[in-house]
Nucleic acid binder design. Structure first.
Lengths: 363, 363
DNA sequence: AGGCACTGTGCGAACGTTCTCACAATAGAA
DNA sequence: TTCTATTGTGAGAACGTTCGCACAGTGCCT
């Protein structure tokens, strides 16, 4: 039989050794009431001698606070989420908070399970990249029951919670704008574009042109497409539907295939805009296998900046997201909220920057 | 003032509604004692009606089990750790365990803090990539106090705990072997090689040649150097000390600088072996900026396989580590141990494979 | 009839903290 | 003096579970 738990030392024993009541010892060790200098010393001495460590479970049970933040990421394995997580973890640690991690794989069921687990474990708050901007009753419920939520990367429609996002639309508009300015007219976009309940690409584009879409609760790749359309509109260019490649899945292979398809057309685009890091990877893979020369035969700008992009033959111009800052901001919003902020929901939008490198030239 | 906690429903209320004692309700809901079919139904019905969720803190306080695993990674932002974490998280989730995450940044103080935090939060076990293979009393203490530990990537000397590692030495030996076989005689190695208390590179090499080093508790980059030396010994080649580049820090920039230094020498090596992903990135950066052609002017093999390596102009031959499998194995070892395994410490060594691509040619 | 094993239920005590009270002592103000 | 405020201490009740025990009923074997 396994040895039970070898004499965990509790506050009672510290109190006994110091010759005071557990209440007094608690006050000294927990730092929450009055205590004389002399007793303080005595208690601390015996705590040290016994190697006392407070049981955070017991504390949490009574205070209702666990000093733990629950995080629901899409997939920590991706550089995007792992950097955000890093930001969250750093800020949390500095304030003595723990981070309980789960992955949703962008699946609603998974997210639901994850939130449930975190809630059961009594986390003080939830930092979530929501899978679905509409069906998020579980988040609403959690919020209503007093568990603060901070969303990142995207926002649930009408959820009254804090959020950190980036200005995808603007960055995309500017990136495409710079391609147009360089003289490009046939600019392709390779984007994930999953989950759009209200129709297909064509109708989305029409509705953007008509100005009848509220962009804030769109998924990032759609916001980036939004910016793509806007840039075309601003320049008075028509959009060739054939140049909008909807990958439909977050997969390198799918991206590669779509890129191949796009670049093998007779009437090939002169420039390619990839809507995130994975799409860029898939595209680069396709481009090298086709033997296309960048930027002579094809100009390129990608969303997300990954280390390898800067040391590729011609380095790839990229929209860089402030990933760790996003995580840090999310954590900070959460900690503020936990510190008693009763302010209305705040929405922080971080700015993006364009790292101009060698992948753009005149067509 | 913030609303307190809006009527959390406890087992007492479920019991009352079902007309039974809390003990009985507990048995049904916790599934740990006898209960008749009829009562089972009644309790479950009222639990469902009230939306009851057990408070895992309270449960943990009494059972001493939190169903939470603490993880101390070096830096989740790195692809290595994030993949491992993914593996850990997947297996843990499947068994209903939560994952509490911390980073050590490979700093002993940080690791100490992290372990302390996790222990205070009463995690059931610790999965750690130890910073220091010698001074790890905190781990020994935790172990002695009944908190199981699984190490990964490296092992603490004489710590009687489970571990998952890969066969760095063998993989490195074989990689270098294949370069030698291709005809290379001047093979450089670019490696982190921090933390070696017993002297410098020269003395390490001498001691390897003398057979007086126990490799299992070395840090991975040293094990890889070990294999490098062995391959040379086996082929009867002398080692040119100038070809062993010790970066001394885990930094892309430092790696790039060392690589530049190495490749600008008059008597340039004909092949380069990089001891991990970051070193490879630094080297590739240096190589492109020098305009060296791979594999004509320089052959190359790198440890760690990152997505971009496969779609670089000539794809880079790489030793691929089974990263997620490593995480999964670590988690599985932990869960076994928690399930009551009293077996002696197990050490799982995973095999590595060489992904042969286009970066190796005759000199 | 007695004994024993098994099933089912409730009472109350844990678990290790914090929190609410009650009570004292001291000091300064009225 | 008496009142009030401030500082200090301890007893005991929380928090929401699980666990040990007592007790009772059933069925089966001697």
């Amino acid at each position: 039989m396994a040895a039970k738990r070898p004499d965990k030392v509790t506050i009672t024993e510290v109190a006994r050794l110091a010759g005071v009541s557990t209440a007094t010892a608690g006050r000294v060790l927990g730092g929450y009431g009055y205590s004389s200098e002399e007793i303080k010393k005595r208690v601390q001495a015996s705590a040290k001698r016994l190697g006392y460590r407070p049981n955070l479970l017991a504390r949490g049970l009574i205070t209702g606070k666990t000093k733990t933040i629950g995080v629901v990421a899409g997939d920590i394995q991706s550089p995007f989420y792992s950097s955000i997580l890093r930001g969250i973890a750093d800020v949390s640690r500095a304030e003595g908070f723990g981070v309980l991690l789960t992955n949703s794989d962008e699946l609603l069921v998974r997210e639901l399970e994850a939130v449930q687990l975190l809630l059961d474990k009594q986390v003080d708050g939830l930092i979530v990249a929501p899978c679905d901007t509409e069906r998020s009753d579980h988040l609403r419920r959690a919020l209503k029951e007093g568990c603060p939520i901070v969303q990142f990367d995207r926002m649930v429609k009408g959820l009254g919670a804090d959020a950190v996002t980036v200005d995808n639309r603007k960055a995309s508009r500017e990136a495409i704008g710079s391609l147009i300015e360089a003289g490009h007219r046939r600019i392709a976009i390779l984007a994930e574009l999953e989950r759009w309940d209200s129709g297909d690409i064509a109708s989305f584009i029409m509705r953007v042109e008509a100005g009848s879409i509220e962009p804030t609760t769109l998924f990032p790749s759609w916001q980036r497409l939004f910016g793509y359309v806007e840039a075309h509109l601003a320049a008075g260019l028509k959009i060739d539907r054939a140049l909008v490649a909807r990958v439909g899945a977050y997969s390198l292979d799918a991206a590669r295939l779509q890129a191949l398809h796009l670049l093998r057309e007779a009437d090939r685009p002169t420039a390619l805009f990839t809507a995130d890091g994975l799409m860029t990877a898939g595209a680069v893979d396709a481009i090298t296998s086709l033997g296309l020369r960048i930027p002579d035969e094809l100009s390129m700008i990608g969303f997300d900046d990954l280390d390898w992009m800067s040391f590729l033959k011609p380095a790839i111009t990229a929209v860089v997201q402030p990933v760790t800052a996003m995580g840090e901001t999310a954590a900070r919003l959460m900690l503020d909220r936990l510190a008693g902020g009763d302010s209305p929901p705040r929405h922080v939008t971080l700015e993006l920057s364009l790292a101009r490198r060698g992948s753009v030239a005149k067509p």
